Simulated scan of single mutants.
Amino acid sequence: MRPKSNVTVIMPCYNDGKYVMQAVHSVLNQTLKPEKVIIVDDGSGPETKTVLKQINFENIEVIHQDNQGVCVARNNGIKLAQTKYILNLDADDYFEPSFIEKAVKVLNEHEEVGVVGCFYRTLKNNKIEQNIIKPLGGSVENFLVKNNGLGNALFRLKCWEQVLGYDEKMAKGYEDWDFWISILAKGWNMHIIQEPLFTYRIKQVSRDSNAMQNHDIELKTYLFKKHQKLYLDNFQSFANQMFYVNNRLKKEKLKSLNSLDYKIGNIILVPFRFLKKWIK
């Protein structure tokens, strides 16, 4: 008899028919199996719906909704879960086989931990990049300036209940960051397994890149206003982190300005600038 994991995997899917089967197999091939996988089709097109119809495993349920965004999809899937633990997995990403086993062990043994993530690698143009990304995790103080976690992580169902789920107003992005802040502000910690047990797919057009390029200030302003008391209570830590980020950006800019490539490029552009000025 196989050990019970007490894990339900929630997998939102929006037009990810090319990748969803890899995500599905990554959870079915875990050394500690999930009790159930709930795929939430968020109004995908015909090609993805055709792929989803072909998924026929005993412990996988596919539900459908009109396109309402990832927050609504996750919340609707989690409402159906009957396990203590929830694992988020976007339909275009995947976990290594040992993640659930190692993450469940952490939650079972450490009552103060509400969320378990891990180091990860990125997949770009069908090639896994060798750089390992190492989110910090920890307490809420580590999340004031940047998201120091991973959107695809294992967490306690009661954490989701305590914060009333994902904020469905954050349809444009950064909902994971907000979700982790909300949970950690309740006194929970996020544990990071220091192994690259997850692969994040980078696509040319993605919700994450759109959020960063087009809605960054708007979303960060919303986060600050929503958690204003938290930021004020941790003002010194917030300020220290902002000073550090500002100093790092200045150093990177200076390094770029002093680089050989920049100097050569600047010399090449001199006659064009003169011509532009002369034409005006």
Rank of each mutant, 00 (worst) to 15 (best):
60 I>E: 08
86 I>D: 07
32 L>I: 02
18 K>E: 15
111 E>V: 13
101 E>N: 08
76 N>W: 09
58 E>K: 12
98 S>L: 13
39 I>F: 04
67 N>M: 07
89 L>P: 02
45 G>L: 14
83 T>D: 02
12 P>W: 05
48 T>E: 08
23 A>K: 03
120 Y>A: 01
103 A>P: 06
39 I>N: 01
9 V>C: 04
20 V>D: 11
20 V>K: 10
36 K>H: 06
18 K>P: 11
12 P>D: 04
15 N>R: 02
108 N>E: 15
36 K>T: 01
89 L>D: 06
45 G>K: 12
79 K>D: 15
113 V>P: 06
70 V>K: 12
75 N>H: 05
98 S>G: 10
90 D>N: 03
71 C>H: 02
25 H>Q: 15
43 G>R: 01
109 E>M: 09
84 K>P: 00
18 K>D: 15
71 C>A: 12
18 K>L: 13
95 F>R: 05
24 V>H: 03
76 N>T: 11
41 D>W: 00
122 T>V: 15
126 N>W: 10
35 E>H: 07
70 V>A: 13
17 G>Q: 03
27 V>A: 04
69 G>D: 02
103 A>G: 05
115 V>T: 11
63 I>V: 14
22 Q>N: 13
97 P>V: 00
102 K>Q: 07
8 T>R: 04
44 S>N: 10
28 L>H: 07
18 K>Y: 11
121 R>D: 09
119 F>D: 14
47 E>S: 10
95 F>C: 05
88 N>V: 11
96 E>H: 11
77 G>S: 00
